[in-house]
C-alpha cells in the first residue's frame, strides 16, 4: 500500500512541476516586454528598469523559474504588483470565502445526488428512474452562473429572503456571512448534484448487475441488506471518485460564482489580477488552482486504493 501511495505521490509531484512550468512560461510568452505591457507605453525608463528588476527580467528565465519555485517551496509566491503585498498572504486571505463555499457546495451536491442516484438505480422498472434521469439531464444543462442569477432574481429581488451578494466577513457578522453564502452554495451545489446523480446511478446499476449481488439476493437477504451491505459498499469506490471530482468541479466553478455574487474569494482575486495585468498574483493563483486539482485527484486515487485492494497492484 505504501508503495502504491508513493508511486501516485511521485506522479502528482511531476504533474505539479510540469504545471508550474506551464504557468511560469506563460509569462515568457507575453509578446514584447512584460514590463511595458504592465506599465503601458508612457512609462518612464526608470520605472521600467525597476519593474524589470522586480520581475527578475534582468536574469535568465531558467534562473527566474528556479528562484520562483524555490520561493514557493517556502510559501513565498512573490509580491503582487497591484496590491503591493505578498501573493501568498493575499490568496490566504481569500480562502475564508473560497474553502467554505467549495466544501458546502460539494457536500450539498452529494447529499442530493447520492440518494437520488441510488433510488433511480433501484427503481429502474418504474417511472421514478426516467423522472430522476430526465431531471438530472436537464439540471446538468443549466449553467451555474445563470442559476445564480435566477436565484438572485427569485430569493433576493422578489422575495427579499436572502442577500443578492457581497460578504460581510466571518469576524464582522457570522450570521450575515452565512446568509450571503447560501445562494452561491445553492447555485454551485444544485448544478453539480445533477451531474453526479447520473454518475451515481450508473455506478449503482453496474454494481447491482454483478454476480455477488445476485447471489446475495438469491440466498434470500432482505433488499435493504443487499443494497446497504453488498451493493453500496462496492459502489463506494466510485462514490469517492465522484466526491473528489465534484470538489474539483465546484472549486473551479466558484471562480465564476464568486463573480456573480460579488464574493471576495480566490476567483474574484484572479479576475482582478487579469484586469490589472498583475502577473505574479496571476501565476501564484493559477498554480494554487492547478495544484489543488492535482492534489485532489491524488487523494481520490489513494482513497481508491484503500477501498479496492485490486487497484493497488495495477
Amino acid at each position: 500500500m505504501l508503495g502504491f501511495i508513493a508511486r501516485r505521490f511521485l506522479t502528482a509531484v511531476v504533474s505539479v512541476l510540469l504545471a508550474s512550468v506551464v504557468v511560469f512560461s506563460s509569462l515568457l510568452a507575453v509578446p514584447g516586454d512584460p514590463a511595458e505591457a504592465i506599465l503601458g507605453l508612457n512609462a518612464s525608463p526608470q520605472a521600467l528598469t525597476a519593474l524589470r528588476h522586480q520581475l527578475g527580467l534582468d536574469r535568465p528565465a531558467a534562473a527566474r523559474y528556479l528562484s520562483w519555485l524555490g520561493g514557493i517551496a517556502h510559501g513565498d509566491f512573490g509580491e503582487s504588483l497591484n496590491y503591493q503585498r505578498p501573493v501568498g498572504r493575499l490568496i490566504g486571505g481569500r480562502l475564508a470565502v473560497s474553502i467554505p463555499l467549495t466544501l458546502a457546495s460539494a457536500l450539498l451536491a452529494c447529499l442530493i445526488a447520492l440518494p437520488l442516484g441510488v433510488l433511480a438505480a433501484l427503481r429502474r422498472e418504474t417511472l421514478v428512474d426516467p423522472l430522476i434521469t430526465a431531471a438530472s439531464q436537464l439540471g446538468a444543462a443549466v449553467p451555474s452562473f445563470w442559476l445564480g442569477l435566477m436565484l438572485i432574481l427569485f430569493f433576493a429581488v422578489r422575495l427579499h429572503w436572502l442577500p443578492a451578494g457581497g460578504f460581510a466577513g466571518w469576524s464582522v457578522d457570522p450570521v450575515r456571512s452565512l446568509e450571503q453564502l447560501a445562494l452561491p452554495v445553492l447555485a454551485l451545489g444544485l448544478g453539480q448534484a445533477a451531474i453526479i446523480t447520473r454518475m451515481t446511478r450508473a455506478a449503482m446499476i453496474e454494481v447491482l448487475d454483478q454476480d455477488y449481488v445476485r447471489t446475495a439476493r438469491a440466498k434470500g437477504l432482505a433488499p435493504r441488506r443487499v443494497v446497504g451491505v453488498h451493493a453500496l459498499r462496492n459502489a463506494m469506490v466510485t462514490i469517492v471518485t465522484i466526491f473528489g471530482l465534484s470538489l474539483t468541479n465546484v472549486f473551479i466553478g466558484s471562480i465564476i460564482i464568486e463573480q456573480v455574487f460579488a464574493l471576495p474569494g480566490m476567483g474574484r482575486l484572479v479576475l482582478t489580477a487579469i484586469g490589472a495585468r498583475d502577473f505574479p498574483l496571476l501565476q501564484g493563483e493559477i498554480l494554487v488552482y492547478a495544484t489543488t486539482i492535482v492534489g485532489l485527484s491524488f487523494l481520490v486515487d489513494v482513497a481508491y486504493g484503500l477501498l479496492d485492494p485490486r487497484i493497488r497492484y495495477t
Partner: peptide
Amino acid sequence: DVLYAFPAILMALLLAAVY
C-alpha cells in the same frame, strides 16, 4: 495529464494574460 490540471477557465486566464 498536465492539461487535466488546467480546466478551460484556468487555461483561458493564462491565455488572457498573454494575449
